[in-house]
């Protein structure tokens, strides 16, 4: 490693520095940080530039000719894999929320139309119901924040899902059954069926469940948290 330092990129200056520290396996105190370009988010993504920093190790690795691992290495190093970063940040968040939890990380079944299989972090905890919250609200908030923090730390988009004791899988099955039942009702009555308002992720499950249904179509109506799926019988099928 030369005294000149190395240049790293990131969505933001912090992300670039984090990426550099991870790559160099050095703590922040052990490098000189020079911001070459603060980057720009641009306007509506137009003209966005990556941030650019140069990190120069203060003590060149391998100085004195001794290739010993330097004591400046952080013990629980800035993990390089998205799974480990996500697990660490989720543990931090849960601890601050007052939950003692065990987290299992796995890759989801790769969906055919998606490039990267999402990382699933399943939380096992005594306070599961509280962590899920009404209509899964708390879980959704936790997932949103975790995604932001992980993306920021990694300097790239990481597709991840937070679940609590398999709640989402069970909820998905229930929603699919509900979709089938309500579709039958729509066909029998010849009338549009209005489902309860649901978050986007759950509406998507309903739409997908009935996508290939021969006798109904689906559409979301309403705004914001009042948005709900309607199941409409196809005309001429009564």
């Amino acid at each position: 490693m030369s005294r000149e330092g190395k240049i790293f990129f990131g969505e933001t200056v912090e992300a670039a520095i984090a990426a550099g520290l991870t790559a160099l396996r050095l703590p922040r105190e052990a490098v000189e940080i020079e911001v070459l370009d603060e980057g720009s988010r641009g306007i509506l993504g137009i003209g966005a530039r990556m941030a650019r920093v140069r990190l120069t190790p203060l003590v060149p690795a391998g100085a004195m000719g001794a290739p010993t691992p330097t004591p400046t290495l952080i013990p629980e190093a800035p993990e390089s894999s998205a799974a480990e970063v996500a697990r660490t940040i989720l543990t931090d968040l849960l601890q601050r929320l007052g939950f003692s939890a065990e987290i299992r990380v796995r890759s989801a079944e790769p969906a055919t139309d998606e490039e990267e299989a999402p990382l699933v972090l399943d939380v096992q905890t005594p306070g599961a119901d509280t962590l899920i919250g009404p209509r899964g609200e708390t879980l959704a908030a936790l997932q949103h924040i975790l995604r932001l923090l992980v993306n920021r730390r990694m300097g790239r988009m990481v597709n991840l899902v937070v679940d609590v004791q398999g709640y989402k899988g069970r909820r998905e099955q229930n929603l699919r059954r509900l979709a089938e039942r309500m579709a039958s009702q729509a066909v029998r009555s010849g009338r549009t069926v209005y489902l309860e308002p649901m978050p986007p992720y759950e509406r998507r499950i309903i739409h997908l469940a009935l996508r290939d249904h021969p006798d109904v179509t689906t559409q979301s109506v309403g705004e914001g948290s009042r948005r709900r799926v309607t199941i409409i019988p196809r005309v001429g099928k009564e």
Binding site: T130, L131, I145
Partner: peptide, 8 residues
């Protein structure tokens, strides 16, 4: 989302 978590 931050508000929701604070509410917990």
């Amino acid at each position: 989302a931050i508000r929701t978590l604070v509410r917990v």
